[in-house]
Design a protein around this nucleic acid. Structure first.
Ligand SMILES: [Zn+2]
Ligand SMILES: [Zn+2]
Ligand SMILES: [Zn+2]
Ligand SMILES: [Zn+2]
Lengths: 137, 137
DNA sequence: ATTATAAACGCAAATATTTGAAAATGCAAG
DNA sequence: CTTGCATTTTCAAATATTTGCGTTTATAAT
């Protein structure tokens, strides 16, 4: 395998904490370090890296896919469709479902960064929140 | 609300069984019925309908989002990243995770068509399959 | 039927993304 | 070091998608 300079910089960009960047954001930031880089180089590098499992690709409701470096704690997100708030959730409950599906369907899971959409507590209507509160007790 | 003719035709297209169509596919098929329709009309209609919950939007690894009519049996899919095979799975186990996360995070889930990527049995290496087989017993 | 209003549409321009083909580059064998 | 090969990069062109804005159209009130 060849060590592409663009790949290295992309990985560095994505290593900034909590980075979930779109292709455009990556391209723009890359230009400050490699002013003459061509957009297609970036798109192709991202495609290659995603296929190699170095980065994950997710739709987080930002209008374009976001890329994240693979390697830290495995995690997933809940994204509010009203206000855009992003919550991070731990892997365990998701992992249990995945293991179940793997056995059930003889399927080897690759997805490792799950995004689920909904409404955060702030954006739920007061009656909904009330209902949830009372049913808890 | 205005009843848009384009929306009606899109819903009709998406009502064909198992339809998971990209914006382009929808645009092309729409042209055979409304030859002069403008692409931006289609993109905007899809955006509107998704926001209204009439259709779901999912990345199924086809290079563009696919749209599906909401309304039939709630289901989800496993998509093989090697060969593109699409398996349909029932809602129950997924639903259990969703209900758990809703309580745990005070989050109201909207996602109703989950896509998970991996490798189908055919595309797993022989040793992997063998391992899975034996660990089962 | 007329009118007012908001929603949907078309059009053209701006962006973003993909694709094919040639040139450049890194790596390793000779 | 030189050669050969595979990978990466660039460039230009093709596609796809988004956006601003003026026009049309459906709906409901007058
Ligand atoms: Zn993340
Ligand atoms: Zn919110
Ligand atoms: Zn489906
Ligand atoms: Zn497969």
């Amino acid at each position: 395998m060849k060590t592409s300079s663009v790949e290295l910089i992309i990985l560095d960009l994505l290593s900034q904490e909590q980075a979930h960047l779109t292709a455009q954001e990556i391209y723009q930031q890359l230009r400050s370090r490699l002013p003459a880089v061509n957009p297609s180089t970036v798109y192709r590098a991202l495609e290659r890296m995603a296929h190699a499992g170095k980065i994950s690709v997710s739709d987080m409701g930002r209008g374009a896919m976001v890329y994240e470096a693979v390697g830290g704690e495995r995690h997933h997100h809940l994204v509010c469709q009203e206000c855009g708030a992003v919550m991070t959730i731990e892997d365990q409950p998701v992992n249990e479902l995945f293991r179940y599906l793997e056995k059930q369907y003889h399927f080897e899971m690759i997805t490792n960064h799950l995004i689920l959409f909904g409404r955060c507590q702030n954006c739920q209507s007061p009656v909904q929140v009330l209902k949830a509160e009372t049913s808890k007790e």
